[in-house]
Simulated scan of single mutants.
Amino acid sequence: MTDEPAPQSSPAPHRFERGTDGPKVIVVGVDGSDSSLRAAAYAAGLARRQRALLAVVYVQPVLAAGAALGAPVADTTEAIAESLIAEIRDAAERVKDIFDVRWEFHTFRGDPYNGLVAAADELTADAVVVGASEQAGHRIVGSVAVRLVKAGRWPVTVVP
């Protein structure tokens, strides 16, 4: 017998794997509603505790009917996005001495569900946080939150 160590195989190339060391990227959907802003605050706390990147996502709706009628849809949604960025920056500035959160703001176009799915895929999200729908009709048809949960691709937290 020899005292030589057994040859070791080279380590496997690093692959993305969900759920191994806690979330590294948390996606939160915001649209300016009270529930989405509560979801952003909740997600910021998660990101701080996990030292994760908080990806704040606004999905700009594509309103083909409004655009066909000459409504300035793009300008309106851009203004909403700019307002959300300003509000998030102000909130981050107010709490920077208490805790610091790494965050990015992203906009995607489309319907809210498909926009959040695209964002979570593109940003390699480990978790998705959304606010509960404030529309009564979503109890029948299904909200974005319910659709994200049913997709089963990420842990989804729904904030009331």
Rank of each mutant, 00 (worst) to 15 (best):
L116R: 11
A55I: 03
T157E: 03
G45T: 08
L148C: 03
S33C: 04
P13L: 06
V28Q: 00
A52Q: 04
T107W: 05
I88Y: 05
G115S: 10
L84R: 10
A44I: 04
D90Q: 07
T76I: 12
D75K: 13
S83F: 05
L123I: 09
S143Q: 00
T76V: 13
A151C: 03
R38D: 13
I140E: 12
Q50Y: 13
I88E: 04
T107Y: 04
M1Q: 04
L63N: 14
L54Q: 11
P13N: 01
I26F: 01
R109N: 11
V146E: 14
R49G: 08
E78R: 15
G32F: 06
G137A: 12
E78D: 15
H138Q: 05
G115T: 03
R48Y: 14
F16L: 11
R102V: 09
A39P: 09
A119L: 02
I80H: 13
P11N: 03
D31P: 08
A41Q: 14
D100Q: 14
S143C: 01
A127V: 00
W154V: 06
A6N: 03
V62F: 09
K24G: 07
T77I: 04
A132W: 01
G115A: 08
A47T: 02
T124Y: 04
G19I: 08
A40M: 15
P5G: 02
V73W: 00
V30G: 08
G45W: 03
V141D: 02
E17F: 06
G137T: 06
A119H: 01
A145P: 09
E87T: 04
A39H: 09
E4N: 05
Q50F: 15
P23I: 05
Y58R: 00
F105A: 07
P61E: 11
T157R: 02
G66K: 00
D100T: 14
T77F: 13
A52N: 06
R109W: 07
S9K: 10
S9A: 13
Q60H: 07
T124D: 11
